[in-house]
Nucleic acid binder design. Sequence first.
DNA 1: TCAAAAGTGTTTGTACTACACCCATGC
DNA 2: GCATGGGTGTAGTACAAACACTTTTGA
Lengths: 228, 228
Amino acid sequence: MKTFDQYQNPALAVDLVVLGYQLGQLQVLLLNRKEAPFANRWTLPGAFLQFTETFQQTCHRILDSKLGMRNLYLEQLYSFDQPDRDPRGRVIAVAYYALINPANYKTAAGTMANDVKWFPVHELPDPAFDHQNIIQTALKRLQAKILYQPTGFELLDQDFTIADIQELYECILGRELDRRNFRRKFLDARYILPTGAKRGNLKNRHPELYRFNKDLPLQKFHLNIELP
Amino acid sequence: MKTFDQYQNPALAVDLVVLGYQLGQLQVLLLNRKEAPFANRWTLPGAFLQFTETFQQTCHRILDSKLGMRNLYLEQLYSFDQPDRDPRGRVIAVAYYALINPANYKTAAGTMANDVKWFPVHELPDPAFDHQNIIQTALKRLQAKILYQPTGFELLDQDFTIADIQELYECILGRELDRRNFRRKFLDARYILPTGAKRGNLKNRHPELYRFNKDLPLQKFHLNIELP
DNA sequence: TCAAAAGTGTTTGTACTACACCCATGC
DNA sequence: GCATGGGTGTAGTACAAACACTTTTGA
């Protein structure tokens, strides 16, 4: 009896949408591809699934070896199956997305500056394969998720001001929010807790620093915001 | 140069969670498995992805050939990757779920009554493989989706009463809802439209029949319900 | 003392909750 | 007329939206 893996199975790739927040913009990490097809085009970091690996293990292999990143927030996004999505043959892509704070991984984008680069999500350089599509899927997922789950703290420093997190939300949702209502919402829900410290060295009033409330009992949190 | 499909790739199966609403209960369609492993156990309908197929095409092949069903609501659910999920070898499962009205497909469960059977989702017969896990994932997805999207009409007859749809929602969400508030919510949102007809042959007042509003302009619909 | 951003409070509208009552139908 | 479920209305409450003023800081 033949084992399954001797049949003609599609190749299985894991592609990663690494999202980071930097300079007031949401950014995606792309690699400059060296080989054909799509040589010199930008692509999502990815790898073929090894026979005994789980998807998450493949993700960590990619992140660790190519980007020197560990312990990221990872979530399965979607599986992409268009038969012609890779000109080399049939390749199924299982996409994951990761949220990171680029400040913690300066080396990654620094040492390999020509090959690895952050791009603002609204100024992408026409990525190879169907990666544009994958990135857009990730953005929609993040938009939806941020409304009902404590997401996005992975994108910020551990201590942050309310203005910081509001900017992040406005950037992801693509619309402006009322400063005072935003503050009330996050504090009332005990979504964030004051650290007692303040951010100094500013020419105006020093804002309080907050931290994500890790002991938040239940997901009572829900932002009732209409997307534009 | 080797083509990708000559490497050792995991097998890729598509598994389907077919959900139907019947007798006031949400039900899953399972097949009785004939071969080892798990002979005589119940499983989700599934098939291996053929080399040139899309996932959806595989879904339709399964539905049409095994169950005689067409034109269903289909949505990708999740991809399952545990290396030991199939004792025969490495098999990745891409799960989809379908919503159907069993009344339209009586033949499917009728002619093959011993092999194909509906099970209420809360009285499942310990399915084979990791299919219990897949089914639970589908239920959670449906619960989440029904709160913010016009879902679930696939599960009902074209014309239905408000009591019908409320029962469905209560069944899926696992909690009771106020009859009068439910009515108002659905009518105000223009989520459903009156047909003008009424359901007769009842020993009490004849309820009005409604139909899903296919021209619903935007997804303003959102049920703000806490799950139990 | 001025600009700039942080912090605080109030008012209004909307939408969900929790109710009680009447209406149509078959027996 | 009576039981059974369908249809309608209303008061209370919670939360989001809109908006104005005061406070702190560095220059």
